[in-house]
Write a protein that binds this DNA or RNA. Sequence first.
DNA 1: TTGTACGCGTTATCAT
DNA 2: ATGATAACGCGTACAA
Lengths: 340, 340
Amino acid sequence: MATMQDVAQHAGVSIATVSFVLNGTKAVSEPTKRRVESAMAELGYRRNPAGSALARGRTDIIALLYPALQRQLHATATRFFTSAAERAQERGFSLVMWPAANEAQEIDALTKSGLIDGVLLMEVQLEDERVEALRRGTTPFALIGRTQDPTGLPFVDIDFEQTVISGLEELVARGHTSIAFIYDHSGPTTLHAYGAIARASRTFRDTIAQSGLSGVTVDCRENPRAGREVGETFRERYPDVTAVLIMNELASPGFMTGLRQAGTQVPEDLAVLSLVSSDTVASMSDPELAFMRAPAEELGRLGTDAVIDRITAPDSPLPNTLVPCEMVNGNSLPRLTEQA
Amino acid sequence: MATMQDVAQHAGVSIATVSFVLNGTKAVSEPTKRRVESAMAELGYRRNPAGSALARGRTDIIALLYPALQRQLHATATRFFTSAAERAQERGFSLVMWPAANEAQEIDALTKSGLIDGVLLMEVQLEDERVEALRRGTTPFALIGRTQDPTGLPFVDIDFEQTVISGLEELVARGHTSIAFIYDHSGPTTLHAYGAIARASRTFRDTIAQSGLSGVTVDCRENPRAGREVGETFRERYPDVTAVLIMNELASPGFMTGLRQAGTQVPEDLAVLSLVSSDTVASMSDPELAFMRAPAEELGRLGTDAVIDRITAPDSPLPNTLVPCEMVNGNSLPRLTEQA
DNA sequence: TTGTACGCGTTATCAT
DNA sequence: ATGATAACGCGTACAA
């Protein structure tokens, strides 16, 4: 509750001097600096954010927008959040998770509220009205993910193209030539149609075509029950397929359960590789899933850096970093040595 | 960006009048009220939160503290968050999820920062230094959960006692007399030792003793892999047990997988009821788990109401509401009619 | 190097 | 019923 005024009196200096040592705004002689600092310590002084915000026109608060109301907040998203928050703190900002904000209207309300200096948007769709809303506005922002044409937008994203290619290589290295790709097809009419899926599925199709492999795509909604249904009929519907890439973290445990239910052995009858997943979910299945781990921590950090850079240096170049997933071995793929 | 000054000029009134109509502080004649309101609309005026916070000494921001860094943010927690945020908005507050804050020190930093009017604390342990920190401080708060002796603390919580009793009744009604209770025993030395587990396990023991049933408790860490290990050896280690209560959402899918791996049929060989869980996780297993659904939405609302009441009416009685879980049928219990 | 003084946007008191 | 105006706590020209 002590104010700068109190500190100034206690140290026998003016309020301006206190501000200078607090913010490093101007040089202050060592002795006075010490006096001020010990006065602050004694009084337990803390800067009042409201006063500071009013004077500077900034709050140093960043909102992480995640459409949790519709999408399940899965383990991967948690890792984004915590790493982003840590990085923000390192740079003197508070990053908090802001609820809702699924629609452009809510974005406008949030940005115009003045409470927020910047926005970090997750789960970006190919066509995303929230991105348009941010673009129209003046609040600094960055995307974790990207729209169809991210030109002129600051973003960091998973390198889905590279991830799918790497995943396919893992399968091909094990001799597979008939491969299925499972993901949620619900399409651009739903919230789930984010760029991740569009980019990954396109890469799958292109790579399959170029390499003379045989590939099919299989639809599966993002919940365990849907995964189970697909798993139960998979062998029957796709008898020639020997390997699966599944990019659907929430459905993957169900899928594995469904396979087992139908007597399909993994990896003997079917090899499975889960794309863009996490240790927690991968280890729910038996056998434990081999998976490509989402680089959540790194993207959280990079995303936070991107927003803060937009805030503090609006003229800095737009970041557009892509980070691939990292392969983690499980027991749902045959061992490579068998083929080598 | 329009200020009250702008609105006042536009409407031909004083800045004070604008404030009055904005806050309903004092009566204003209909005609002037209209003029002011249309001026606000035209200019797209929005109150500046920093200015307001400075003048009122309040920010109208509530922090939801969840130790996401150590604990997985599971589906149930998401439901808490969204319902709490909704309720806060209805009452004119912003509720945001604040990262970290696992330790008393972080609580102090947060509450003294002045950014926050109130705190809603989740995952409360029986002995919780964070609660002590809140108690020492002056920031209004409420708990979702409770400590060993919650006297004098504002809290809302799941009625674990009732939930366990109801769960046992479901099993007894199906003729089971030898029952296991699976949960994480890691104990008071870890973060996981929160009141939920302590209360539930005590109730289990007490009820078993009083009713002449046979019961055992089984340790299992909160991750799918641990669940699987327990599942794989369960039948062998506890051949007489015919029914299981499992209060460990993260481990439950692994447990079911482990049972199946070991050839243990559910519910024929073993009936399973998951306590304090969610649809998403319950439906990951096959057969789908019968479970007692955590009343997350209701607790989120009640918790938010509790904090806001502490803020706006510090003399109001301390809330201490308990809400039991609701039974949801799955396929992991035999049908009741078989026994009736 | 340090101090004075004004402005940031709102709220609330005290006049009128 | 409405208007002037003094806080609220901090940042920063501008002065000294």
